[in-house]
């Protein structure tokens, strides 16, 4: 079903949606839902559960739309809600971030300058990470949060966030090494 875009600006669309206009809400949903499902999918391996989280995230978006002050990007605001909703889902499902303050001795890392993998392949790599590592890695490397912010979101210390990121990177490097050796027959 195609929605006719009769609202001139996004601001107008947001205002209509905030007043409870279902058509305007649907317009916003159609515009942002695919991107937001992508966001949720980064944290949650199962696409069905990721969609559940996205649905509850959109319900929250429409319920609290009047609190949006049009000061920053609307997409960024929705994305924040989706990220927090995903983390909340992980918490409910016994997601644990071990509070490790002692970082392991940094070993020299293999630097991978470029790759030619499709998005699904990258996603499968990230999915292979344990929940705690994956959340920290995605928040830091993909969403661009700082360790302090990650600590607040996940309710962990800043050093734990750093430690988790370090471990996530090491696992990814191991996997990349294996795939390179299989792919190229080297090492």
């Amino acid at each position: 079903m195609k929605i006719i875009p009769f609202y001139k600006s996004e601001k107008q669309l947001i205002k209509k949606s905030a007043s409870g206009n279902r058509d305007a809400q649907r317009c916003l949903y159609e515009k942002y839902a695919p991107k937001m499902l992508g966001v949720c999918r980064r944290y949650i391996k199962d696409l069905q559960f990721a969609e559940d989280v996205m649905v509850s995230g959109f319900v929250k978006v429409f319920k609290h739309l009047e609190t949006f002050r049009h000061e920053g990007s609307f997409e960024g605001w929705i994305r924040q809600i989706m990220v927090r909703e995903s983390i909340s889902y992980l918490r409910k499902n016994q997601f644990v971030v071990y509070d490790e303050t002692v970082m392991e001795k940094i070993r020299p890392q293999t630097t991978i300058n470029s790759f030619d993998w499709d998005t699904e392949h990258i996603q499968s790599l990230i999915d292979s990470l344990p929940d705690g590592y994956r959340a920290v890695f995605v928040l830091y490397a993909i969403e661009g949060y700082k360790h302090q912010e990650i600590g607040e979101i996940l309710d962990i210390t800043e050093s734990t966030s750093k430690s988790q990121l370090f471990k996530a990177r090491r696992i990814l490097q191991e996997q990349l090494k294996q795939q390179n050796s299989i792919g190229y027959g080297t090492e």
């Binding site: 695919p34 991107k35 499902l37 999918r41 996205m54 998005t119 993909i142």
Partner: peptide
């Protein structure tokens, strides 16, 4: 690559 990823609900 991941930020541009879109999944149709």
């Amino acid at each position: 690559q991941l930020q541009g990823r879109e999944i149709k609900p």
